[in-house]
Write a protein that binds this DNA or RNA. Structure first.
Lengths: 192, 192
DNA sequence: AGTCTAAGTAATCGTTCGATAACAACCGCC
DNA sequence: GGCGGTTGTTATCGAACGATTACTTAGACT
């Protein structure tokens, strides 16, 4: 296999594993096993584990912004822009661990290299909302806040607790008044 | 010193360190150094690093709910309840790493023990908002979403990037339209 | 056929970390 | 004024991890 194809496969596997266990909690052997290659090969392709994680979150941000731009360009829809953007965000749950890897990066601001990359990525999203989506300040705040809440619910793995606990069910309905079916479906796919 | 006093000192130190580096990224030696004791003593007082982290987040949740209850009982104020609750949340930034340790737990839902504790803690907050604060579904969603956004901004360490980058300044003003001064002040204390 | 290069692995090394064991100092108490 | 329990330390062990080295295999080109 060509090395650039192998890189992409490893990046996909690493996105899932980093999303589940975080940056420090993920070993290069975990990534290698998920990608079906040997551990030293992962290290040789990316140099260091830190560089691998940086590549993972930069790829995740590129995919996220690409999804946003698709939603933005879908002008013949009668769905309002804010809702199209929200759906584009939730659709990223198709890629297991993509939003979660970003979230892990977002709470590591004190890590010198990763923190800087995380801040830069977050600001890229902000600039997109402001400049390309044309959101005003309140729209930006609502969008970012709800996005972080989604990330937290995914990180908590709350959907798997959905069945059985009526309080959890009620909380999820309260937090996702309409997107719940989609979130549940995507979460089920994620577990499979 | 009595061991229960020492335990509290270690819990405070551990809250800061776990908040900065996360659960896996923090070593028991880091906690011991921050608390001014030896590393084996930390392990002996708490059994395992996992149990120490569980104690940290349970203490953080107890303090958080206690702050909420104080805001709830402050009925002679003319400040509306939602705002009092928001201020109570932001006031938790006085304890370095308290909200951040919780956030680290919230993204580890797949960890069997920590994930279960994190979900339980999050649900305790939800039940408080619903039963004690009397929030309706929309108020709960807004409160939780904004809280997670605050946590993310703290995790990103975005306030330290405040000076210098006009986009960061603008984003922070957009996200914290009125609480910005408080957040900045508390963040400065945190760095000191 | 023979050689060069890219793709990939097995073996292993040095470090770090959580935990354990053994030991030391203080303090109340009879 | 020894004695037991509590508080705390130093030394160290075994496992895990990231990284390095050396080796192997498979095409591509002449």
């Amino acid at each position: 296999m060509r090395s650039d194809e192998r890189r992409e496969l490893i990046l996909q596997a690493a996105t899932d594993v980093f999303g589940k266990s975080g940056y420090v909690g993920t070993t290069t052997a975990d990534v290698a096993k998920a990608a079906g290659v040997s551990q030293p090969y992962v290290v040789r392709l990316f140099g260091t584990k830190e560089q691998l994680f940086l590549d993972v979150i930069n790829r995740a941000l590129a995919l996220l912004l690409a999804g946003f731009r698709s939603a933005l360009d879908d002008t013949d829809s009668d769905v309002p822009l804010e809702r199209r953007m929200g759906l584009a965000y939730v659709n990223q749950l198709n890629q297991h661990g993509l939003l979660l890897s970003l979230m892990h990066a977002f709470v590591l601001g004190r890590e010198p290299v990763i923190g800087a990359a995380a801040r830069h990525g977050f600001m890229a999203v902000y600039r997109f909302l402001r400049d390309e989506a044309g959101f005003d300040a309140d729209q930006v705040q609502q969008f970012l806040a709800f996005g972080m809440l989604i990330n937290t619910m995914i990180g908590l793995d709350m959907a798997d607790e959905f069945e059985g606990d009526p309080d959890v069910r009620e909380m999820m309905q309260c937090v996702f008044p309409e997107k719940l079916d989609m979130v549940r479906k995507l979460s089920a796919e994620q577990s499979a």
